[in-house]
C-alpha cells in the first residue's frame, strides 16, 4: 500500500511536468490576445479562435486530409511491417543481417537528405500532388519493421517448434501464434506510424502544392500572418489537431489491454 502511494506520487509529479505545456496551449487557445504574455488564469473565456479557425480558414479540409493520409499509412504499416520483422527476427532467410542493416540505414537517414532524388523520382512516376505520392514513401516504415523484429525475437522459438510438430504451416504459425503474441508491439507500430504520418512536415511540403490537399503541419504554421504569430489561433489549431490522435490512442489502448489479458499476473 505504501509502495503504491509512493509510485503515484512520482507518477503525478511527472504528470505535472508533462501536462503544463499542454494545458498552457489549451489556455492560450481560449485567449483573445496576439501575445503569449497572458495571465495564467483567464479572466474571460473566448471561443473566438475556434470560430475563426473553422469559418475563416481551410482548417477542416486540412484536418480531413491529414486524417485520411495518416489512417492509410497506419493500416499499411500494420499490414507489412510485422511479417517483415518476423522474417528478420528468425534470420533463416540468407542475407537477413544485410537486409537489416539496409533497413536501419534507411531509417536513420533524414528525409531532408533525399529530397531532390526523391522529388525527381516522384515527378517521373507522376506522383507529385497525389495522395499516393505521400503515402508510398511512408507505407512501410523501417522503424516499424525494426520494432517488430526486436519484439518478435523475444518470443521463444520453442513455441514455433512445437507448433510445427503439431503440423502448422509457416504462414499458420505467423498468423495464429506470432501475430496474437505481438499485440502490444502492433499497437506501438500503429501509434508510431500514425504519429509519423500525422506530424510529417517535409514530405507534404515538397509533394503537395495544391491548397485543397494541404496537411495540418503545413497549414498551421501558415496561419501566422505576415510574420505575426497569433498565439490564440496557433494554439486552438494545435489543440484541435491533438483530438484525433487521442481518439486513436484510446481505441488502440483498449486493444492493447486485450493483448495484455493473455499475459495476466505481471507484477
Amino acid at each position: 500500500m505504501k509502495k503504491q502511494v509512493f509510485l503515484h506520487v512520482i507518477a503525478i509529479g511527472l504528470l505535472i511536468f508533462i501536462m503544463i505545456p499542454v494545458l498552457w496551449t489549451f489556455r492560450l487557445s481560449l485567449s483573445q490576445t496576439y501575445s503569449a504574455n497572458v495571465p495564467l488564469i483567464p479572466s474571460e473565456v473566448s471561443f473566438n479562435n475556434f470560430k475563426v479557425l473553422f469559418n475563416d480558414t481551410p482548417f477542416l479540409t486540412w484536418l480531413k486530409n491529414t486524417l485520411i493520409f495518416s489512417v492509410i499509412v497506419t493500416f499499411l504499416n500494420v499490414l507489412f511491417a510485422p511479417s517483415a520483422g518476423y522474417v528478420l527476427a528468425r534470420g533463416k532467410l540468407p542475407g537477413s543481417k544485410f537486409i537489416l542493416l539496409g533497413i536501419v540505414s534507411a531509417w536513420v537517414i533524414p528525409w531532408l537528405t533525399v529530397l531532390i532524388p526523391l522529388y525527381i523520382a516522384m515527378s517521373k512516376l507522376g506522383l507529385v500532388n497525389t495522395f499516393q505520392g505521400l503515402i508510398l514513401p511512408l507505407a512501410v516504415s523501417p522503424m516499424a519493421i525494426f520494432l517488430a523484429r526486436q519484439y518478435i525475437s523475444n518470443i521463444p522459438i520453442e513455441i514455433e517448434e512445437s507448433a510445427i510438430v503439431d503440423g502448422a504451416s509457416k504462414l499458420g504459425i505467423f498468423f495464429k501464434i506470432i501475430l496474437p503474441m505481438s499485440k502490444p508491439a502492433l499497437m506501438i507500430v500503429a501509434l508510431m506510424s500514425f504519429i509519423q504520418a500525422w506530424g510529417n512536415f517535409i514530405l507534404p511540403l515538397i509533394m503537395i502544392t495544391k491548397t485543397s490537399m494541404k496537411m495540418l503541419t503545413i497549414g498551421i504554421p501558415q496561419l501566422q500572418q505576415q510574420g505575426v504569430t497569433n498565439w490564440g489561433i496557433i494554439s486552438a489549431s494545435s489543440i484541435f489537431g491533438i483530438l484525433p490522435v487521442i481518439i486513436i490512442f484510446v481505441a488502440l489502448n483498449k486493444y492493447f489491454m486485450e493483448g495484455l489479458a493473455m499475459r495476466t499476473g505481471m507484477k
Binding site: L14, I195, T217, I220, P221, T229, G241, V250
Partner: peptide, 25 residues
C-alpha cells in the same frame, strides 16, 4: 492507463508546433 494516455500527449503535438509553443509561451 490514465497516466499512459497523459504521458503520451506531447507526442501528439507535431514537434514543429510544440516547439513554437515552448519558445514563446
Amino acid at each position: 492507463s490514465f497516466y499512459k494516455a497523459a504521458y503520451y500527449l506531447p507526442m501528439t503535438l507535431p514537434l514543429s508546433i510544440a516547439a513554437v509553443i515552448w519558445r514563446g509561451g
